[in-house]
Design a protein around this nucleic acid. Structure first.
Length: 261
DNA sequence: ATGTCACGCTGGGCGTGA
Protein backbone atom coordinates (compact mmCIF):
# COMPACT_ATOMS: atom_id res chain seq x y z
CA UNK A 1 0.00 0.00 0.00
CA UNK A 2 1.25 3.43 -0.96
CA UNK A 3 0.04 5.91 1.64
CA UNK A 4 0.41 9.68 1.79
CA UNK A 5 -0.31 11.98 4.72
CA UNK A 6 -0.57 15.72 4.12
CA UNK A 7 -1.78 18.78 5.99
CA UNK A 8 -3.05 20.84 3.05
CA UNK A 9 -4.03 24.07 4.87
CA UNK A 10 -7.38 24.42 3.06
CA UNK A 11 -8.51 21.83 0.55
CA UNK A 12 -10.18 24.51 -1.55
CA UNK A 13 -6.98 26.54 -1.83
CA UNK A 14 -4.88 23.40 -2.35
CA UNK A 15 -7.10 21.39 -4.71
CA UNK A 16 -4.76 21.83 -7.72
CA UNK A 17 -1.82 20.59 -5.66
CA UNK A 18 -3.77 17.60 -4.29
CA UNK A 19 -4.74 16.61 -7.84
CA UNK A 20 -1.10 17.06 -8.85
CA UNK A 21 -0.06 14.71 -6.05
CA UNK A 22 -2.63 12.05 -7.03
CA UNK A 23 -1.47 12.22 -10.64
CA UNK A 24 2.23 12.16 -9.82
CA UNK A 25 2.33 9.52 -7.08
CA UNK A 26 -0.86 7.47 -7.63
CA UNK A 27 -1.22 6.68 -3.92
CA UNK A 28 -3.65 4.04 -2.70
CA UNK A 29 -4.76 6.22 0.19
CA UNK A 30 -4.20 9.82 1.25
CA UNK A 31 -4.77 11.11 4.78
CA UNK A 32 -5.61 14.81 4.61
CA UNK A 33 -5.66 17.32 7.45
CA UNK A 34 -6.79 20.94 7.75
CA UNK A 35 -9.23 20.61 4.90
CA UNK A 36 -11.05 23.71 6.24
CA UNK A 37 -14.13 22.89 4.19
CA UNK A 38 -17.82 22.39 4.99
CA UNK A 39 -19.18 18.88 4.46
CA UNK A 40 -21.69 20.25 1.95
CA UNK A 41 -18.97 21.69 -0.29
CA UNK A 42 -16.38 18.90 0.00
CA UNK A 43 -15.24 18.25 -3.62
CA UNK A 44 -16.25 14.57 -3.83
CA UNK A 45 -17.05 14.79 -7.56
CA UNK A 46 -13.63 16.25 -8.40
CA UNK A 47 -11.91 13.32 -6.74
CA UNK A 48 -14.31 10.79 -8.27
CA UNK A 49 -13.44 12.15 -11.71
CA UNK A 50 -9.76 11.29 -11.16
CA UNK A 51 -10.40 7.87 -9.66
CA UNK A 52 -10.60 8.50 -5.92
CA UNK A 53 -13.33 8.05 -3.37
CA UNK A 54 -13.27 10.56 -0.51
CA UNK A 55 -14.62 10.18 2.98
CA UNK A 56 -14.53 13.31 5.08
CA UNK A 57 -15.09 14.64 8.54
CA UNK A 58 -15.54 18.34 8.03
CA UNK A 59 -16.15 21.27 10.35
CA UNK A 60 -16.37 24.31 8.09
CA UNK A 61 -13.68 26.91 8.25
CA UNK A 62 -11.33 25.19 10.73
CA UNK A 63 -9.67 21.78 11.00
CA UNK A 64 -11.23 18.91 9.10
CA UNK A 65 -9.76 15.55 8.05
CA UNK A 66 -10.41 13.21 5.14
CA UNK A 67 -9.30 10.00 3.43
CA UNK A 68 -8.91 9.68 -0.33
CA UNK A 69 -8.96 6.07 -1.50
CA UNK A 70 -8.12 4.84 -4.98
CA UNK A 71 -11.24 3.45 -6.64
CA UNK A 72 -11.36 -0.34 -6.57
CA UNK A 73 -9.93 -0.63 -3.07
CA UNK A 74 -12.58 -1.69 -0.58
CA UNK A 75 -13.50 0.83 2.14
CA UNK A 76 -15.40 -0.35 5.20
CA UNK A 77 -16.33 0.60 8.75
CA UNK A 78 -15.83 4.36 8.42
CA UNK A 79 -15.76 5.92 11.89
CA UNK A 80 -15.55 9.66 12.41
CA UNK A 81 -15.47 9.45 16.22
CA UNK A 82 -12.48 9.28 18.53
CA UNK A 83 -13.72 8.02 21.90
CA UNK A 84 -12.84 10.52 24.63
CA UNK A 85 -11.84 13.34 22.28
CA UNK A 86 -12.20 16.75 23.97
CA UNK A 87 -14.37 18.42 21.32
CA UNK A 88 -15.98 16.19 18.65
CA UNK A 89 -17.11 19.31 16.75
CA UNK A 90 -13.51 20.04 15.79
CA UNK A 91 -13.23 17.21 13.23
CA UNK A 92 -9.73 16.00 13.99
CA UNK A 93 -9.98 12.21 13.55
CA UNK A 94 -11.38 9.86 10.91
CA UNK A 95 -10.71 6.13 10.48
CA UNK A 96 -11.71 3.43 8.03
CA UNK A 97 -10.69 -0.01 6.81
CA UNK A 98 -8.90 0.43 3.49
CA UNK A 99 -8.17 -2.84 1.74
CA UNK A 100 -8.08 -4.56 5.13
CA UNK A 101 -5.82 -2.02 6.83
CA UNK A 102 -7.19 0.29 9.50
CA UNK A 103 -6.21 3.82 8.45
CA UNK A 104 -6.76 6.91 10.61
CA UNK A 105 -6.19 10.54 9.59
CA UNK A 106 -5.57 12.79 12.59
CA UNK A 107 -4.99 16.46 13.28
CA UNK A 108 -3.78 17.09 16.82
CA UNK A 109 -4.64 20.54 18.25
CA UNK A 110 -1.83 23.10 17.96
CA UNK A 111 -2.03 24.00 21.65
CA UNK A 112 -1.38 27.74 21.19
CA UNK A 113 0.96 28.22 24.20
CA UNK A 114 1.86 26.17 27.26
CA UNK A 115 -0.65 27.17 29.93
CA UNK A 116 -3.35 28.12 27.42
CA UNK A 117 -6.61 26.14 27.81
CA UNK A 118 -6.00 24.70 24.32
CA UNK A 119 -2.69 23.25 25.53
CA UNK A 120 -4.56 21.09 28.05
CA UNK A 121 -7.00 20.14 25.28
CA UNK A 122 -4.05 19.05 23.14
CA UNK A 123 -2.78 16.75 25.89
CA UNK A 124 -6.27 15.29 26.42
CA UNK A 125 -6.59 14.71 22.69
CA UNK A 126 -3.28 12.82 22.68
CA UNK A 127 -4.59 10.63 25.54
CA UNK A 128 -7.68 9.77 23.49
CA UNK A 129 -5.46 8.93 20.50
CA UNK A 130 -3.26 6.79 22.75
CA UNK A 131 -6.22 4.69 23.91
CA UNK A 132 -7.75 4.23 20.45
CA UNK A 133 -4.42 3.59 18.71
CA UNK A 134 -3.55 0.85 21.22
CA UNK A 135 -6.91 -0.82 20.57
CA UNK A 136 -6.41 -0.69 16.82
CA UNK A 137 -2.80 -1.86 16.89
CA UNK A 138 -3.77 -4.85 19.01
CA UNK A 139 -6.58 -5.75 16.61
CA UNK A 140 -4.77 -5.76 13.26
CA UNK A 141 -2.78 -3.82 10.66
CA UNK A 142 -3.07 -0.14 11.51
CA UNK A 143 -1.79 3.20 10.25
CA UNK A 144 -2.36 6.37 12.27
CA UNK A 145 -1.13 9.27 10.18
CA UNK A 146 -1.35 13.02 10.26
CA UNK A 147 -0.26 16.29 11.80
CA UNK A 148 0.61 15.50 15.41
CA UNK A 149 1.80 19.04 16.15
CA UNK A 150 4.65 17.59 18.24
CA UNK A 151 8.29 17.24 17.21
CA UNK A 152 9.23 13.88 18.76
CA UNK A 153 12.88 14.75 19.50
CA UNK A 154 15.23 17.74 19.46
CA UNK A 155 16.66 16.65 16.11
CA UNK A 156 13.17 17.07 14.65
CA UNK A 157 13.40 20.88 14.89
CA UNK A 158 15.81 23.11 12.99
CA UNK A 159 17.12 24.79 16.16
CA UNK A 160 16.07 23.36 19.52
CA UNK A 161 17.31 26.48 21.33
CA UNK A 162 14.72 28.65 19.57
CA UNK A 163 11.84 26.45 20.72
CA UNK A 164 12.60 26.18 24.44
CA UNK A 165 9.35 26.97 26.24
CA UNK A 166 7.26 26.80 23.06
CA UNK A 167 4.63 24.29 22.08
CA UNK A 168 5.53 21.24 19.95
CA UNK A 169 8.64 20.37 21.99
CA UNK A 170 7.59 20.43 25.66
CA UNK A 171 8.15 17.30 27.75
CA UNK A 172 4.38 17.01 28.28
CA UNK A 173 3.62 16.94 24.55
CA UNK A 174 6.48 14.58 23.79
CA UNK A 175 5.33 12.29 26.58
CA UNK A 176 1.80 12.34 25.14
CA UNK A 177 3.08 11.39 21.71
CA UNK A 178 5.46 8.76 23.09
CA UNK A 179 2.52 7.09 24.83
CA UNK A 180 0.67 6.87 21.51
CA UNK A 181 3.68 5.15 19.96
CA UNK A 182 4.15 2.89 22.99
CA UNK A 183 0.74 1.36 22.37
CA UNK A 184 2.15 -0.74 19.55
CA UNK A 185 3.08 1.67 16.76
CA UNK A 186 6.30 2.92 15.26
CA UNK A 187 7.35 5.97 13.28
CA UNK A 188 7.48 4.80 9.65
CA UNK A 189 9.77 7.60 8.49
CA UNK A 190 12.34 7.02 11.25
CA UNK A 191 12.15 3.30 10.54
CA UNK A 192 13.80 3.76 7.15
CA UNK A 193 15.48 7.18 7.58
CA UNK A 194 17.29 7.08 10.94
CA UNK A 195 19.52 10.05 10.14
CA UNK A 196 17.67 12.40 7.77
CA UNK A 197 16.05 15.57 9.14
CA UNK A 198 12.75 14.73 7.46
CA UNK A 199 11.12 18.08 8.19
CA UNK A 200 7.49 18.31 7.12
CA UNK A 201 6.57 21.87 8.10
CA UNK A 202 8.14 25.28 7.54
CA UNK A 203 6.62 28.62 8.56
CA UNK A 204 5.38 30.69 5.63
CA UNK A 205 7.26 33.68 7.06
CA UNK A 206 10.90 34.68 6.97
CA UNK A 207 11.80 32.41 4.07
CA UNK A 208 11.82 29.51 6.51
CA UNK A 209 11.67 26.80 3.83
CA UNK A 210 14.52 28.25 1.80
CA UNK A 211 16.59 28.56 4.96
CA UNK A 212 15.91 25.05 6.23
CA UNK A 213 14.02 26.29 9.29
CA UNK A 214 11.60 23.40 9.60
CA UNK A 215 10.12 20.86 11.96
CA UNK A 216 9.09 17.21 11.67
CA UNK A 217 5.57 17.26 13.07
CA UNK A 218 3.68 15.06 10.57
CA UNK A 219 4.02 11.33 11.17
CA UNK A 220 2.80 8.01 9.85
CA UNK A 221 2.65 5.52 12.72
CA UNK A 222 2.30 1.86 11.79
CA UNK A 223 1.59 -1.33 13.71
CA UNK A 224 3.82 -4.39 13.81
CA UNK A 225 1.70 -6.07 11.13
CA UNK A 226 3.17 -3.71 8.54
CA UNK A 227 6.68 -3.46 7.11
CA UNK A 228 7.91 -0.09 5.83
CA UNK A 229 9.47 -0.44 2.35
CA UNK A 230 10.14 3.26 1.91
CA UNK A 231 9.30 6.69 3.29
CA UNK A 232 10.09 10.18 2.09
CA UNK A 233 8.94 13.78 2.29
CA UNK A 234 8.15 15.30 -1.11
CA UNK A 235 9.38 18.85 -0.61
CA UNK A 236 8.49 19.86 -4.18
CA UNK A 237 4.97 20.38 -2.80
CA UNK A 238 6.35 23.03 -0.42
CA UNK A 239 7.17 25.24 -3.43
CA UNK A 240 4.97 27.13 -5.88
CA UNK A 241 4.48 24.90 -8.94
CA UNK A 242 4.90 25.82 -12.62
CA UNK A 243 1.23 26.79 -12.90
CA UNK A 244 1.69 29.22 -10.01
CA UNK A 245 -0.34 27.15 -7.50
CA UNK A 246 0.73 27.93 -3.97
CA UNK A 247 2.02 25.41 -1.45
CA UNK A 248 0.71 24.38 1.95
CA UNK A 249 3.09 25.13 4.81
CA UNK A 250 3.35 21.33 5.22
CA UNK A 251 4.88 18.87 2.72
CA UNK A 252 3.36 15.42 2.11
CA UNK A 253 4.99 12.23 3.41
CA UNK A 254 4.94 9.21 1.09
CA UNK A 255 5.09 5.78 2.71
CA UNK A 256 5.27 2.36 1.07
CA UNK A 257 3.85 -0.36 3.31
CA UNK A 258 3.58 -4.11 3.01
CA UNK A 259 1.70 -6.60 5.12
CA UNK A 260 4.00 -8.91 7.05
CA UNK A 261 3.83 -12.67 6.97
C1' DA B 1 12.56 34.42 15.75
C1' DT B 2 8.24 36.35 12.58
C1' DG B 3 9.56 38.93 6.52
C1' DT B 4 2.71 34.64 5.48
C1' DC B 5 -1.43 32.41 4.27
C1' DA B 6 -6.43 31.33 4.35
C1' DC B 7 -10.75 31.92 6.28
C1' DG B 8 -15.51 34.52 7.05
C1' DC B 9 -17.73 38.70 6.77
C1' DT B 10 -18.63 41.70 3.15
C1' DG B 11 -17.67 44.40 -0.55
C1' DG B 12 -11.69 46.07 1.56
C1' DG B 13 -9.68 45.54 5.43
C1' DC B 14 -10.01 43.28 9.91
C1' DG B 15 -9.99 39.53 13.32
C1' DT B 16 -8.77 34.70 13.97
C1' DG B 17 -5.88 30.72 13.79
C1' DA B 18 -1.80 28.41 12.56
Amino acid sequence: MRLVTWNVNSLKARLPRVLELLHEHAPDVVCLQETKVAAATFPHETFAAVGYRAVDRSAGRWNGVALLVRQGLPVADVRPELPGEPDPEEARWLEADVDGIRVASLYVPNGREPGHPMFAVKLRFLEAVRDRAAELAAAGPTVVAGDVNVAPEDRDVWDPAVFVGSTHVTPEERHGLAEVVAGGLRDAYRDVEPDAAGFTWWDYRMGAFRRGMGMRIDLALVSEHLAVRGARVDTTFRRVNQAGDKPSDHAPILVELERRG
